[in-house]
Design a protein around this nucleic acid. Structure first.
Lengths: 188, 188
DNA sequence: GAATACATGTAATCCGTTACATGATTCT
DNA sequence: AGAATCATGTAACGGATTACATGTATTC
C-alpha cells in the first residue's frame, strides 16, 4: 500500500522523469512548503515504488561510488496517483506549535506576548513578499495559466493558498496585538 | 528535556489539576484542534513530567484495576512553561496533504477537481459554523475577555485564528472554482 | 443485560529526523 | 587546495498511531 510520501514522489515524477537527488531537492523547496522529506526517505521510497510497479528506473551516466538512476512514472503509477487524487479528502493536520503556545499565552506578561506576536507577523510578511515574487515568475512564464490541465496550474494554486492563509494570519496578528495593547504595559 | 507534548500537557495542568484521562480527552477536542495525542502518549508523558519535577500526582478515589491519579503543575513546571512560551518562535509545520493533492490537481479531470474543492469548501463552512457557536459561548461566559491574563483569552485567540484561516481557505476555494469553471466541462 | 464512559497502563509498528558513509566533478 | 554540488545509500533513534489488556460505574 502506497503511503502519502509515495504519492508526493509520484506527483513529481508525473511532471518529468528525475533522479532521486533531484526529487529530494524538490522535496526541500517547491513541494517542501507543504510536504518535506530528506533523501534518506526518498531513496527507499523510490525502491518501494519500483517494486510496486508504479515507477521504473534506468541507469544513466553519473559521478560517485554508486549508480545514478533516473526514475519515470509508469502507467500503473499514473493510475494510482489519479485514483488517490479523486479519493476521500483528508482531514486537516492538527499540529500547530504556534497555536499550542497561544493557548497558554495568558500566562505570559503582555510585553513578551506582544513581542511573540510581532515576530510571527514579521515572518508572515516576509513569506508573503517571497510568494509575490514567485507568483510574478509564474505570470511571466510561457505556460497558459487559465488551463487547469498544465502542471503550472497546480503550483499556482498552492501559491495562492499560501498567500491567502498568510494574509489571514497577519490579520489575526493585528487583532491580537490590539487586544494585548488595550490592557496596561504590565499586568501584575 | 521536555518535549512539545510535555508543554501541551503542562498548559492544561496550568489551568487546573486533572487526571490523565481528563487530559487525554482534552487532547482530543479543545487542544486537539492543533495538537492531538492519544492516551498511550499521555500516561508515559505525565510520568516523565513528574520524574522531572514539573508535575506532581496524588492518588484519589476511582474505579478500575489501577489507581486513579490527579496531577497538578509544580512551580518548577510553571517556570518551564513560561520559559518555553517566551523562547524562539517555531517554524510552521509543513505537512498539508490537501496541498499535496492540489499540487497534482492538473492531472485530474476538471469535474473531479471541482468536486474535490467543493467538498473542502463545505467542510470549511461547517467548521466555521461550529467555531461561531463556540465563540458565542465565550461571549456569554462570565470571563472578562478583554483581560489577556485569564485562561479564556488564550482559547479565544486560537478560535479566532481558526476562524480567520478557514475564511481564507473558503476564499481560496472560490478562486479555484472560478478558475476550474472557465474551461469546458471536460478537458479531454 | 448491553453499551458506554471512566480510568490506566504496555507493546508493536510505522514514519521521520539526524547522523554515518562514500566518492566524483565543478567552481573559487 | 578546498569548498560546494552531485549522487546514493544505511543505521540509530525518537515520536506517534494502533492494538492489546484490565476492570468499575453508570445509563438505557
Amino acid at each position: 500500500m502506497t503511503t502519502t510520501l509515495g504519492f508526493a514522489v509520484l506527483g513529481l515524477l508525473a511532471k518529468k522523469r528525475q533522479t532521486g537527488y533531484e526529487i529530494s531537492r524538490a522535496m526541500q523547496r517547491p513541494v517542501g512548503y507543504f510536504w518535506r522529506a530528506g533523501h534518506s526517505q526518498i531513496y527507499p521510497q523510490l525502491a518501494a515504488l519500483e517494486a510496486a510497479g508504479l515507477a521504473r528506473s534506468t541507469v544513466i551516466a553519473g559521478p560517485g561510488p554508486r549508480e545514478t538512476k533516473r526514475y519515470a512514472i509508469t502507467p500503473a503509477g499514473k493510475t494510482a496517483l489519479t485514483t488517490w487524487l479523486g479519493g476521500p479528502v483528508p482531514g486537516e493536520d492538527h499540529k500547530d506549535e504556534l497555536m499550542l503556545r497561544v493557548w497558554s499565552l495568558w500566562l505570559l506578561p503582555a510585553d513578551d506576548a506582544r513581542e511573540l506576536v510581532r515576530t510571527v507577523r514579521d515572518e508572515q510578511l516576509a513569506a508573503l513578499e517571497a510568494y509575490a515574487f514567485e507568483e510574478q515568475d509564474f505570470l511571466l512564464s510561457a505556460a497558459d495559466l487559465t488551463d487547469p490541465a498544465v502542471p503550472e496550474f497546480g503550483e499556482l494554486a498552492t501559491l495562492r493558498y499560501g498567500t491567502l492563509r498568510r494574509r489571514a494570519t497577519v490579520e489575526w496578528c493585528d487583532w491580537l496585538l490590539s487586544r494585548l495593547s488595550q490592557s496596561g504595559t504590565v499586568t501584575t
